[in-house]
């Protein structure tokens, strides 16, 4: 009896391993935070010369970007980033949801696996390849379509401003290629979310005499809202940060215009294009743009989380 009771208090080897594992996990978790903080601190530090002079160089408020006279207004870059990303999301989301619904609700088991592999393969294509394909294949192919849109819709007051004169490289083509690039991630997340919809909910809709589409509207979408927003935000984040493909396709023209067929620029494109030639406040301004992009991404994500949480509370009632 005494030997048995003594084992209750003894710290054996297992206890020590357990402790070591716990420490390892904590350390791994903290590493992420440290890296994030280090990035934020060093970029803020290096961009400070440009940002602290925001009053003179118009960093946050001006659309004038001319390093030769010390003007670093970043608005055209922010504008281009937002426009191309929004085009990408607007085009990619319906397509991705369609693919995911096809895979979860319609596709026979046999072909499901190969389609998933194909889409994942799309995610493995290097972005420079997408960029070159965009320049040599997509842009020439789309130009007649853009011209037709311009001719057809150009006369209508508000729409006409969006579909203006057509340039060879423009916001639209960049957004289109970005859309193709973010389809895999949005598809894979929405597919997983759709897979988690309880069968009992689908059965409930079927039993009320729902058609397949009515079943999807009534049972699949309400359950998937949070995951859908999450997937869209991940896609948006990826689109906003994409560098090479956009740099190759957007036309590198520093301007703010409603015309989607006009050339523009974006934050990552500017950084990759100008960083080599920059120095002093110029470099500092480019790093500052990076900080702005980082902050915008964080805000977008926080916003998405808030939307998801609100929706979940509304859907699930007090239990959430």
């Amino acid at each position: 009896m005494t030997t048995q009771s003594s084992t209750l208090t003894q710290k054996d080897r297992g206890r020590i391993t357990d402790r070591a594992f716990w420490l390892l996990c904590i350390a791994a978790g903290i590493t992420v935070l440290v890296i994030l903080a280090a990035i934020l601190v060093s970029t803020l530090q290096q961009s400070w010369p440009a940002m602290s002079k925001a009053g003179e160089n118009g960093f946050f408020t001006s659309k004038l970007w001319d390093p030769n006279i010390g003007k670093f207004g970043i608005l055209p870059f922010v504008f281009g980033t937002l426009v191309t990303s929004l085009i990408a999301v607007a085009l990619a989301v319906p397509v991705s949801i369609g693919i995911a619904l096809f895979l979860t609700e319609l596709a026979p088991r046999r072909i499901k696996g190969s389609i998933v592999t194909l889409i994942d393969l799309l995610a493995a294509v290097p972005s420079v390849v997408f960029g070159l394909w965009g320049i040599y294949v997509l842009a020439p192919a789309m130009t007649p379509v853009y011209k037709w849109l311009h001719d057809t819709l150009g006369g209508i007051p508000v729409l006409g401003a969006l579909f203006g004169e057509v340039s060879a490289l423009n916001f639209m083509t960049a957004g289109l290629v970005l859309a193709i690039m973010i389809v895999p991630i949005i598809t894979s997340i929405t597919r997983e979310v759709f897979d988690t919809v309880p069968d009992s909910d689908k059965q409930a809709a079927w039993a009320l005499g729902a058609t397949r589409w009515e079943m999807i509207k009534g049972a699949v979408f309400p359950h998937s809202f949070g995951g859908l927003v999450g997937g869209v935000m991940l896609g948006l984040g990826r689109a906003m940060g994409e560098t090479i493909a956009v740099a190759l396709l957007i036309g590198n023209s520093i301007q703010i215009t409603a015309n989607l067929f006009a050339p523009g620029t974006s934050i990552p494109a500017a950084i990759v294009n100008y960083f080599g030639e920059a120095g002093g406040d110029y470099t500092s301004a480019l790093i500052g743009m990076g900080v702005v992009l980082f902050v915008v991404t964080v805000i977008v994500n926080l916003l998405a989380q808030a939307i998801v949480r609100r929706a979940e509370i509304r859907m699930r009632g007090a239990k959430a």
């Binding site: 309880p198 009992s200 909910d201 059965q203 409930a204 809709a205 079927w206 039993a207 009320l208 005499g209 729902a210 058609t211 009534g218 049972a219 309400p222 359950h223 859907m315 699930r316």
Partner: peptide, 27 residues
């Protein structure tokens, strides 16, 4: 689909949709 509109069903586990009470019935 027409059959199920005439012959309704209630399941073992209660399975309301994740919607409001009103919308569950209105669906």
């Amino acid at each position: 689909i027409q059959v199920r509109r005439r012959i309704g069903m209630v399941f073992q586990k209660p399975n309301p949709f994740p919607k409001s009470i009103y919308e569950n019935v209105a669906y």
